[in-house]
């Protein structure tokens, strides 16, 4: 399941933004507004210590969350080692370690 996370671009799996539940997205934006600064450059994912072992992709994950796609997030987020390299390379100054921590909390509190 998690392995296919985000890869399938089938018609039936288009992002239905209107219907998606954006509760976690709202929680994230409210508690770590710097997430809005992301320009999707991928630096974080490329440098990610976890990403060197597995298909964990922090950029894709938080982008999905902002679109209300949260199905696989719960399992994915658990892979992060918290080393902080992503934050150190982000050209936009996104506070990424707190993004992860906030997503963790959002999942805990909001399902």
């Amino acid at each position: 399941m998690a392995k296919n996370f985000g890869y399938k671009i089938l018609p039936g799996e288009s992002i239905d933004f209107d219907r998606n539940d954006k509760l976690i997205a709202r929680y994230l934006v409210e508690h770590e507004p710097s997430i809005n600064l992301c320009i999707g450059c991928g630096s974080c994912t490329a440098t990610c210590s976890t990403g060197h072992f597995t298909d964990f992709n922090i950029r894709r994950m938080h982008t999905f969350i902002l679109r209300g796609e949260t199905k696989h997030i719960k399992k994915e987020i658990q892979k992060c080692m918290f080393c902080g390299k992503c934050q150190l390379v982000c050209p936009r100054g996104v506070n990424l370690r707190n993004v992860i921590l906030t997503i963790n909390r959002a999942i805990e509190h909001l399902g």
Binding site: G42, S43, T45, A46, C48, H52, N57
Partner: peptide
Amino acid sequence: LKTEDTLTGRPL
């Protein structure tokens, strides 16, 4: 070089 190929969503 380590980058993310953001259009495929995978590290490259």
